[in-house]
Every structure is written in C-alpha cells, then in structure tokens.
Amino acid sequence: MISGLSLCRLIMNRWQFEQLIDALDGPDWWSIGITIVNALIMVWLGISQYKLQKRQTELQQRQTEAQEYEIYKRLYMLLVQVHNEVNEFMHNVSFGTWGTYYQADKELLVRKEKSINQLKNDLLTNYVDYELKFSKGLFDKEAYRQILNTMSAILFHVNQAIEKDEVNMPVGSQQIPSIDGDMEKGEAFALAGRFKHMEFMLQGFMNFVNQKRRLGSCEEALKVIKEKCKID
C-alpha cells in the first residue's frame, strides 16, 4: 500500500511535470527557442560569409599578383630583346650589306625589320602599363620608342635600297675609319658609304648612334624587375 507521504510526493511530482509541460507549451518558451535558433543561424551565416569574403580577397590578391607578374615579365623580356637588337644593330646592317654574307643569307635584314616592328608593337601595346609602373628615370619609354622607330626606318630604307640595287656591297675587307676617336661614328660613316644616297643614310646611322648612347644600359631596370617578380 502507498503511504500518505508517498502519495503526496507522487501527486506533487506529477503536478511539477505537468507544470513543466505547460511551460514548454507556452508561447514564451517557443519565442525563446526560435530566438536562440535564429541567433545560431545568424552566427553560422556570419562565419560562412567571413570565410567566403576571405577566400575571395585571397583569390583577388593572387589574381592581382599574377597580373603584376605578367606586366613585369613582359617588360623584362622587352628590355632584354631591345638591347640585344640595339647592340647588334650596326653589325647586322654591316653583315646584311656585305657581299659574302648577303649571298649566304639574303633575308637577314628583312627578318630584323620584322623583329624590330614587333618590338615596337609590344612596347605600344603595353605602354600605359609601363607608364604607370615605372618612373622615367628607371625606364624611359619614349627613348625606347624613338630608337625602335629609328631602327625600323633605317632597315626599311636599307631593304628598299637592296631591292633597287642601290647598295655597293663590299666583298673583301673594309677599313673602319675613326671619327675623332669615335669608332661607332666611323662605322656609321663606312656603312653609309655603301649606299647610293649616302648623306641620307649617314644621317640615319648617326641618329641611331646618338640615341643608343642616350638610352644607356638597362641593368638597373632589370635588377628592379627581378626584385619585384623574382625572375631567375
């Protein structure tokens, strides 16, 4: 038999349980529960949004770095190629208008003209990028444009003169004179002497020599580019 005390406890426990059920069924508890769930959802959404934005920022940064690398890489290659062409320009014209070498490779100066024109196009295509990235002291874009124009014009007239048979191509050795101790200007004078329109060609060659000296070396610019994009 259940004692009076046990019966009272049983009745009390049942009453407390019913009170708990009533409380949970009440509108206040549902509101609190919904609020908690919504808060958890908002926290989850915030964390997800933060991670997404972080990934997007990292992706944009990598894209920017890749674009920067391509700009520096293009300029690096342009500088190397232009200076190679500049340093070998007079020699190439000499070989291309020397009887023995011309017979061995009649298209040498035609190829060189195409190469110079391609370098001109590369420079002009990326001119704005280079202007924004580099100071005139480091990379004088106008000086490069001018010397490429001069080289292109000289090669055009040289090739035209060859086609019209207006070039007296030496076969044996040729003495290069020194003009006031300046061998480059002496070479320009000797080359111009091979052409029918000597004065016109001499002006072009002398202009090239002067522009080459103003252009100077590209070593400092190459060093800076290497540091920026780590080209080995």
Rank of each mutant, 00 (worst) to 15 (best):
M201S: 01
L78H: 09
M169S: 04
I116L: 07
N159L: 04
A143Q: 13
G4N: 07
L79Y: 00
F139R: 01
N84V: 08
V82R: 03
Q67M: 09
E65G: 07
V224K: 08
I116S: 02
F95D: 03
K228Q: 13
Q63M: 04
S94D: 06
Q146N: 11
G172T: 11
L155R: 00
L222S: 11
M12S: 10
R62M: 12
E113D: 07
A143D: 04
F89Q: 00
L10D: 08
I32Q: 08
F205Q: 02
K120G: 02
M183D: 12
V110R: 03
V43T: 15
A161S: 15
Q61C: 06
L108I: 08
N168W: 00
H157R: 11
G172I: 09
F139S: 05
V37Y: 13
M1Q: 05
F189M: 11
L45P: 00
V82Y: 02
K226P: 10
Q56L: 15
K212Q: 11
V82S: 06
K112W: 05
L124P: 02
K185I: 01
L10H: 03
M198V: 14
L132M: 10
S6G: 05
M12G: 01
L155T: 08
Q175H: 09
K226R: 15
F200V: 07
E58G: 03
N84G: 14
M183K: 15
T125A: 04
T57H: 15
Q211K: 14
M151L: 04
E227I: 12
S178N: 11
F156N: 05
I179F: 05
K164M: 12
F17A: 08
L75K: 01
L123W: 05
N117E: 02
C8Q: 07
F195K: 05
Y127F: 15
G193C: 08
K196Y: 13
M183W: 14
D25T: 15
R145P: 02
K133W: 02
Q211R: 13
E199H: 15
T64W: 11
R55V: 13
I71P: 04
N117R: 03
A221Y: 06
A104E: 08
L108W: 01
D105N: 12
G96Q: 00
P27H: 09
A188N: 01
V167M: 00
K185N: 03
K114A: 13
K230W: 07
T35I: 11
T150V: 10
G172H: 07
M169W: 01
E65T: 15
E85L: 04
I21V: 08
S3F: 04
Y102N: 01
E70Y: 09
F89G: 04
F134Q: 04
Y127G: 07
Y69T: 13
A190M: 12
N117G: 06
Q19M: 10
M42E: 01
K228T: 05
I47F: 14
K54G: 02
T150D: 04
R194E: 06
Q63I: 09
E166C: 03
L215R: 06
A188W: 00
V171W: 05
R9H: 10
V86L: 05
K114V: 08
F195I: 06
N207C: 06
W29K: 10
V209I: 08
M198N: 14
N92S: 14
E85C: 03
L191D: 02
Q16A: 10
R194C: 01
Q118H: 08
V93G: 00
D122R: 07
A190G: 01
Q49C: 10
L202P: 00
F134H: 04
N38T: 12
S135T: 14
